[in-house]
Computed example of a mutant assay.
Amino acid sequence: MTLPIAWSAAREAVFEAGSAAAPAAVPVPLAESDGLTLAAGLVTLTDLPAFPTSSVDGWAARGPAPWRIVGRVLAGDAAEPLAADGTCVEIATGGMVPAGTTAIVRVEDSTVTGGAVTGEPRKLPDWRRRGEEAAAGEELLPAGTPVTPGVIGLAASCGYDTLLCRPAPRTALLVFGDELLTAGLPGKGRVRDALGPALPAWLRRAGTEVVAAHGPVGDTLEDHVAALRGAVEAGAQVICTTGGTMHGPVDHLHPALAELGAEYVVNTVAVRPGFPMLVARLPGGQFVAGLPGNPQSTFVALVSLVLPLLAGLTGRALPTLSSVTLGADVPGRGDFTHLALVTLDGGRARPVAHVGSAMLRGLAGSVGFAVIPPGTEGRAGAVAQLVPLLDGERS
């Protein structure tokens, strides 16, 4: 019998396996990079701003007032220097501040009389100095940073046209089980497939490209092997399966992996719920993440193994755990780590109801799993680690 690996060690093992198998980085156009991961630090290609720019509409002046108007600078113009005291140019927000400028006076703080301007500049300068935000060659973001719209905008302002990124992992989903219905009401021994519709959405939110989703896969060894081979042929780098991770009469995942020559990275984890989870590597380098068939256990396996694996494959850091203060007692699970679904109530984490392995009601109203280490219990008022659930944003 395979002894389960500690939950924290399992996360690290699959993360390291993913990191070792991370694909080469490729340049990606800015508009297509959202949700990917920087493979190199984002270094400024120029000073930011590249030249001094006005923060307001007004007058760029040299020396004391009054100032004789000698020109105009709009955004996009190359400004000529102010050569003499007592001169100024009209300037628009974003316009290049002329060399020699000693002050910028806002339109609302100025008066124009007969071609001359008078007024008082504000105490704080109304222009951005060259390099105020960053100096050329400065690293703004490290490798491993997820690309967001904010990162894309920053890269564009630095002068980038493409970003060197890790490609989005290509994933597939195989749902095992003859008992599953894909439409209609459950009954007569058959249940609705709750994972086939849900897991692809979670995989996309984790930043992957779902290239195949197939199910229900028949409860035979031949069907399991054929489905795994089909996912490989579809180009999946990570194949998630649901069900069949035990050793019952219709559990064929382990024999299928053996027939395909797979090697285990993790085989069974000391965590409740969801302990019969696994990650194996096929001879071609593809990963198979075997998730239990009970829905809540499936999502425990997703956050425990699949997300750390994907982080490694994309060059990101191992997903960090946040902290919460428990608002009620949470039982332990003996020698196993207990991942307990919780919701936030008044800033404190409280266990939710309806958390059986086969239930999804509790999960739908939760913010994540409180981590109760082996041999302990969670006490109200104590601080616990939290494994967050994916939200509506891409990670």
Rank of each mutant, 00 (worst) to 15 (best):
A213T: 14
L228A: 00
L228Q: 00
R205N: 05
P216M: 09
R192F: 11
E233C: 02
R205W: 01
L185W: 05
L228R: 00
A227S: 15
V210Y: 07
L199C: 09
E222R: 13
L180H: 02
V191C: 10
G215M: 05
V217F: 05
D223P: 00
A226M: 04
H214P: 00
V217M: 04
R229V: 01
E179M: 05
R204T: 14
G207Q: 08
G196P: 04
I239L: 09
L203I: 08
G230R: 13
G177L: 04
P216Q: 06
A198M: 15
A206P: 02
G207P: 07
G187Y: 09
T208W: 03
E233S: 14
L199N: 06
D219P: 07
R190Y: 08
G207K: 06
D223V: 08
G230P: 02
K188T: 06
W202G: 00
V225F: 00
L199F: 07
A213C: 14
V191Y: 12
R190D: 03
R229M: 10
R229E: 15
E179F: 04
L180W: 03
T245W: 01
A206S: 15
G184P: 11
K188F: 13
V191T: 14
G244E: 03
H214V: 13
T245M: 10
H224S: 13
G187W: 10
T182S: 14
T208Y: 03
G196V: 04
R204W: 03
A201I: 12
G177S: 09
G187P: 09
A201L: 15
G184K: 11
E209K: 08
V211R: 11
A227V: 06
I239G: 05
E222C: 00
G177H: 03
A194V: 14
T182R: 14
H214K: 10
P197H: 08
V238F: 05
L199D: 06
A194G: 06
T220P: 04
D219I: 04
E233T: 13
A198H: 06
L180G: 02
T208M: 05
L228Y: 00
P216S: 07
A194D: 10
L228S: 01
L195E: 12
L185D: 15
G218D: 12
A236M: 10
T241Y: 01
G243Y: 05
P200Y: 10
A194S: 15
W202F: 12
D178G: 08
G184Q: 11
A236I: 09
L195S: 09
P186C: 12
V217K: 01
V225R: 06
L221D: 03
L185R: 15
L181Q: 08
L199R: 04
L203Q: 13
A213P: 02
G235H: 11
V210D: 07
P200I: 09
L185Y: 03
V191E: 14
L180F: 03
L228C: 00
T241N: 03
P186Y: 12
G230C: 02
A201T: 13
G184V: 11
L221M: 07
V238P: 02
G189L: 10
T220Q: 07
P200S: 12
G177A: 08
V232W: 01
G235E: 11
P216T: 05
P200F: 10
G207A: 11
E233A: 15
D219L: 08
V191L: 13
D193F: 02
G244Q: 04
L180D: 01
V238R: 02
